[in-house]
């Protein structure tokens, strides 16, 4: 299994990047893929709050931190690194990765490079695709429609979306369905990974008293997202063994 970097980002804020990163970490853990994560919301990271054991806060524009991520890809115990890119830093991060030669190394197949580009409901999200496209020609690029924060992608015309989508070869699209607001809020308050919430566990691993109904909603929501990741063949892309379902 080659080391892999999964970049989760968007140039707009509030589109649910960290939520997608969290779901991704749960999905990989459920499939026995050892993963580490980097939270670029320096100095305080939301991702680290939910996955403190495997997450490190870094400043992606800071050379020592770039070294911490890239130079350890081969030596780290975890072969998969998820980077939750802070709002507005997607373009800058990709530029930084190009400058340090990471994109070339990915092209030479030394690493697997996966980009999850989280799209918001506004048309400006579609313009981001055009900006990011030049950097991801050799990446496994997934456009993520995240419905968790919004019920509809109100500004989108399906034909406009399709025309943007066609601009990028090999792009896949992933849909994150809506989660009941109260269930989402309860997970936020509990400060645990979605999987721990479903399993009724506190951050310390003790038995919790979360509502069964809310856990049920989260369980179904996670199952649907796992089906989406399975559908796009994420585990195969990462070189991990897909489990029998």
């Amino acid at each position: 299994m080659k080391p892999a970097v999964i970049l989760v980002g968007a140039d707009k804020g509030g589109v649910g990047k960290t939520t997608v990163s969290r779901v991704l970490l749960d999905y990989l853990a459920a499939n026995n893929v050892v993963t580490r994560a980097f939270d670029t919301e320096s100095p305080r990271g939301t991702l680290k709050r939910f996955h403190p054991g495997i997450t490190e806060i870094v400043d992606i524009n800071h050379t020592p931190d770039q070294m911490k991520i890239i130079d350890t890809l081969n030596s780290a115990g975890a072969k998969i690194s998820v980077i939750d890119v802070r709002a507005g830093q997607m373009g800058a991060t990709l530029r930084a990765l190009r400058e340090i030669g990471f994109l070339d190394a990915a092209q030479a197949e030394q690493f697997t490079f996966v980009v999850f580009h989280i799209l918001g409901p506004s048309i400006s999200s579609l313009d981001e695709i055009a900006e990011i496209a030049p950097f991801v020609s050799d990446a496994n690029y997934f456009l993520v429609k995240n419905f968790i924060n919004e019920t509809t992608f109100f500004e989108w015309d399906p034909r406009t979306y399709a025309s943007y989508f066609r601009k990028i070869k090999h792009a896949g699209d992933v849909t994150i369905p809506k989660l009941n607001e109260m269930a989402f809020e309860q997970v936020e308050l509990s400060g645990v990974p979605f999987s721990a919430f479903v399993n009724n566990q506190t951050a310390e691993g003790d038995a919790a008293k979360y509502s069964f109904v809310l856990r049920g909603y989260v369980r179904t929501w996670m199952r649907n997202i796992s089906a989406e990741f399975d559908r796009v063949g994420l585990l195969a892309t990462l070189g991990a063994k897909a489990p029998k379902r």
Binding site: N180, E181, M182, A183, S211, F212, V213, L214
Partner: peptide, 13 residues
Amino acid sequence: VIQGQISLFDRLL
């Protein structure tokens, strides 16, 4: 409403 769902199903369990 979700509160109603919780008051029913959580109690049933």
